[in-house]
């Protein structure tokens, strides 16, 4: 009796989970389906087949979408920005976080509070003057404003790495010190290898932020050949309004790298989110 009740409960749970997953996944599926439709089919809504199944399957949409807006260049630019931002964040934040976590110096805790406080500051407050700074040194319409800032550390990653450094027993480091390690060697050879998962989380987050950043490129980039994917896709939406098959093909191409990254590094994704409570 009890067993049967349990069983029917389990079936109901599965049912809810399946329906829920469907609701969440169908839009993605529809994105892919539409990306393979002909233009005429995107307008047809007479039956579910027309809505969900591309008939005929038009792979060429991808090639055509790539050709229309310079999506290949956009890909390159997005990667360029993401790679440099990741490098900048890793280099700067590791040192800053280590200093906050392990080294004792006057004013440390007060300054750490400032770091935390800057996380609350909306970027819009500094947007205009920062733009003017970049304009003045002639970096508008270059990719530099999109990544240079990351070399000066970002509050969120400093916080994240500091939390990780704090979990490492002091003894390990002290042992290294006794062996005659300086601070640089202690960081590179002892500490960083120990917080590899955290570094991977940083890489993932920074990648997602750079990849998804829209306001930055919108403000700084004008040339067609410097557009990032987000900007390219938006420009594409603007120019090809109504050509949904191309728009969806471009959207799929933009989403794919993120999904691949997610499946490859799923564990670190979830660890990073859990520890900091920030969504990707």
């Amino acid at each position: 009796m009890l067993n049967r009740k349990k069983q029917s409960r389990r079936v109901a749970l599965h049912l809810i989970l399946i329906i829920g997953s469907l609701i969440f996944v169908v839009p993605l599926f529809w994105m892919i389906a539409t990306s393979l439709k002909t233009e005429e089919q995107t307008q047809m809504v007479d039956n579910w087949r027309q809505v969900f199944i591309p008939q005929p399957v038009k792979w060429n949409n991808y090639a055509e979408a790539l050709q229309y807006v310079n999506l290949i260049a956009c890909f390159k630019n997005s990667l360029h920005v993401a790679a440099l931002s990741i490098a900048g964040t890793l280099i700067s934040c590791a040192f800053v976080a280590y200093s906050f976590a392990r080294l004792r110096w006057p004013g440390r805790d007060a300054i750490f509070m400032i770091v935390i406080a800057t996380m609350m500051l909306p970027a819009q407050v500094t947007m205009v003057p920062v733009f003017l700074i970049y304009a003045r040194i002639g970096w508008v319409n270059t990719l530099k404003p999109l990544w240079v800032g990351s070399f000066f550390g970002s509050a969120f990653f400093i916080f994240l790495l500091r939390q990780f450094f704090m979990t490492i027993p002091k003894e390990i480091e002290e042992a290294a010190k006794i062996d005659g390690c300086g601070y640089f060697r202690a960081i590179f050879q002892v500490m960083l290898p120990l917080i590899k998962p955290a570094l991977l989380s940083v890489i993932i987050f920074q990648f997602m932020w750079s990849w998804n950043d829209f306001l930055g490129p919108l403000v700084y980039i004008q040339s067609r050949d410097l557009m990032t994917l987000t900007l390219g896709l938006q420009a594409f939406t603007y120019q090809h309004a109504g050509q949904w098959h191309y728009l969806m093909a471009a959207s799929v191409m933009m989403t794919m790298p993120v999904i691949i990254l997610f499946f490859a590094l799923q564990r670190y994704f979830i660890e990073g989110v859990t520890l900091t409570g920030i969504k990707g």
Binding site: W30, M31, V258, I259
Partner: peptide, 15 residues
């Protein structure tokens, strides 16, 4: 359930 949340905002908006 998680997958949609990592789709880039611009792609989500277009979709």
């Amino acid at each position: 359930f998680y997958l949609p949340s990592i789709v880039p905002a611009v792609a989500t908006a277009v979709l």
